[in-house]
Design a protein around this nucleic acid. Structure first.
Length: 141
DNA sequence: GCCAACGTTGGC
DNA sequence: GCCAACGTTGGC
């Protein structure tokens, strides 16, 4: 089991829109960055991820699960680009903001801080637990 | 809206 | 294969 973080501008694709898709989930399309794509290729069915709102909010608002492994991104004809499908699992009761992450010394090495512009990031198990705890989740998904 | 950081593109 | 130009992202 691996952990990830998915960034989205809420104007473009918000947590509410993701939740509305329910169990069916939705493909995480539009990624045009090799590193982000490689991260998605490494994902396995059932991997968990944070859903992060960039620009507006700048906070982790939800937990998602990978419900389809990497496949071609249908929003482009270019065969280089792939994406996974994710579905909403639950809300983060107390959204964890970027500022919260920055002041937590144990999260200093988190990709959210060190690789700010990467839109799909790996999260370590330790970081996962810390952010879940900060987010007020009773148990770690 | 600005601007810094960074990834990609394309000429050489 | 290098590097300058350019475009995009995302925090502020």
């Amino acid at each position: 089991m691996a952990y990830w973080l998915f960034k989205s501008e809420p104007f473009k694709w918000s947590w509410e829109m993701q939740k509305a898709k329910g169990e069916a989930g939705e493909q995480w399309d539009g990624v045009r960055n090799y590193q982000a794509r490689n991260n998605m290729r490494a994902m396995k069915l059932g991997d968990k991820g944070f859903f992060y709102h960039s620009n507006e909010g700048k906070e982790v608002v939800g937990i998602v699960e990978v419900c389809a492994e990497a496949h071609h991104d249908s929003t482009t004809d270019d065969p280089r680009w792939e994406c996974v499908d994710i579905k909403a699992v639950c809300d983060v009761p107390k959204p964890v903001t970027l500022a919260d992450v920055k002041v937590e010394p144990r999260l200093a090495e988190m990709s959210l801080v060190t690789s700010m512009r990467l839109s799909v990031q790996p999260v370590t198990e330790e970081e996962w637990k810390i952010v879940c705890e900060m987010g007020g989740l009773k148990e770690v998904p």
